[in-house]
Amino acid sequence: MHILDVVQNSVRAEAKLVEITLSGDQEQDLLTLEIRDDGKGMDSETCARASDPFFTTKPGRRIGLGLALLAQAAREAEGDFQVASRPEAGTMIAASFRWSHPDCKPLGDITATLETLVTAHRGVDFVYEQREGAEIARFDSREVRRA
C-alpha cells in the first residue's frame, strides 16, 4: 500500500508527528488511507505537482515515485487521491480504493512497517489507527515511550 514509502516524505519534511489512518467500510466497499504530518509542508505549486513522477524536491534527482505510485494505485482501484498542504502547516495525503477491486493493493506487513518507522526515526512519533466498522485498533509511539 506504499505506506512506508509515503511516510518517508513526511520524515524528510522534518515532521515530528505522523498519523496514519486506515479505514475499511464493507457496506460502501471502500478502503481509505490517510497520512497526516506536521512537517514543513509545501507551497501550492509544489503540492500541485506532488504526484507527478517526473517531479521531486530532492536535489540532484529527476523523478519522485512515492506519491505517484500511490495515486496510480488509487486510480487503478477506482478510488481517489488527494494531497493538501501549506507551508509550515504539514501535509495530508488521502487515498481511497474500491475494496473489492481486483487491483486494490494488499496492505502488506503493517507490523513491519511500524517497526521500521519507529526504529529508524528517533525524533518522530507515529500514530497508527485501523478502523473497520465499530472496531478500532490504535498504536501511538508516544504512549509506548511514556509507559
Partner: peptide, 13 residues
C-alpha cells in the same frame, strides 16, 4: 482487511 493485533505490536515496540 486483516486486523492487526496492535497490543502485540505495542509489546514489540
Amino acid at each position: 482487511m486483516r486486523f492487526e493485533d496492535l497490543d502485540k505490536i505495542t509489546d514489540r515496540m
